Amino acid sequence: MSNRTVDNHSPGDFGERPLSPGEIRQISKKFREKDPWEVLRWGAEQFGKSMVLACSFGYEDVALVHMLHRVAPETDIFYLDTDLLFPETYETRDRLAKALDKTFIRVRPEYSLEEQAKLWGEELWKRDANACCGIRKVNPLRRFLKGYSAWCTGIRREQSPTRAHTEVVEWDHQFGLLKLNPLAYWSAKEVWAYIREHNIPYNPMHDRRYPSIGCVPCTRQVQPGEDSRAGRWSGMDKTECGLHPSGEIKDRR
């Protein structure tokens, strides 16, 4: 399977018409106490091939991949390959692909690391992590999502204060399409129980105090008592890569 544009409805369409903000709120409220796979099934029924699941191969995402495989196995699943991922992340990808007989769409930045260094300098993530995330994550995602009407993520309200108001179904103003967060109201304990019940392959770094795993230069172990995302961009005034908060991160030269 390769990166491609698919035929779909206009963003936010529900059947033949756009969803209103009120309808989105009502749908989200309806699904708050439903199981996450019911949200995925609803999305697949409404949007078909114009729904896509984002996967970083963290524990929330591997659980969602398994759920989606149960209810709508033909749905596209993609990952953002920044060229800076941990070897364990790629290994988890391969183990999950083999277990579910699924191919994941690889979405890459416009620039290689070498090209980025020539344009913005070596190790941009140390000097301007926002710009680096914009180049290697946000802008590739923006280009890719233009082919879809809805996307699904593994973010949860419990993960951090910046995600505390996440809803199960919401309008993504940044990327201009519907966003499904089936695990929004689930706890980490519930996600891990699902993983263990179904023996789903997961990143072994989670067993070494890495609850949130991103790029190698910007991820460290989390110490006891710290927030689960404290290991991301440690020592920087940054808590998100820019995929989920509103506001555009642009390339800088």
Rank of each mutant, 00 (worst) to 15 (best):
T92C: 10
A54Q: 13
L64Q: 11
S50F: 03
T75Q: 14
F78G: 09
F47V: 07
L100Q: 13
F47W: 15
D94A: 15
L96A: 08
D76Y: 01
D94P: 01
P73M: 12
D81K: 07
V62D: 04
K49R: 15
L53V: 09
E60S: 11
H66T: 07
L64V: 09
D83Y: 10
K98G: 02
D76A: 06
S56H: 00
E60C: 04
K49N: 15
E88L: 08
E45G: 03
A72N: 08
K49W: 08
L80E: 11
L80P: 03
G58R: 08
L64Y: 12
R95F: 05
I77G: 00
T89G: 04
Q46C: 09
A54V: 05
C55M: 07
A99C: 09
T92Q: 10
L85N: 07
L68N: 11
T89W: 04
L80Y: 12
G48A: 09
G58F: 00
P73F: 03
L80A: 10
L96D: 07
M51C: 14
L84R: 14
V65A: 14
R70C: 08
F57H: 10
F57Q: 10
F86Y: 13
E74V: 03
R70S: 08
I77Q: 05
E60N: 12
T75R: 02
A44S: 15
E91S: 07
L84E: 09
D83L: 11
L68W: 03
Y90N: 09
S56A: 10
H69D: 15
T89N: 04
M51G: 04
A54D: 06
F57P: 00
R95S: 08
D81L: 07
L100I: 10
L100A: 06
D101N: 15
D81E: 12
L64P: 00
T75N: 08
F47T: 05
M51P: 05
V62T: 09
L96M: 14
S56F: 01
S56C: 00
A54R: 12
Y79P: 04
E45Y: 06
E91M: 11
A99K: 14
G58H: 08
T75M: 05
V71R: 13
A97P: 03
Q46K: 15
G48L: 13
F86N: 09
V65Q: 01
C55V: 02
F86G: 04
E88Y: 06
V62F: 00
M51A: 15
Y90K: 12
V71I: 12
A72Y: 02
Q46G: 00
T82Q: 03
I77L: 13
E88N: 07
T92I: 04
L64W: 06
V65C: 05
D81V: 04
F47H: 14
D94G: 05
V62E: 02
T75D: 04
H66P: 09
A44N: 05
D94I: 09
F47R: 12
Q46W: 10
H69R: 15
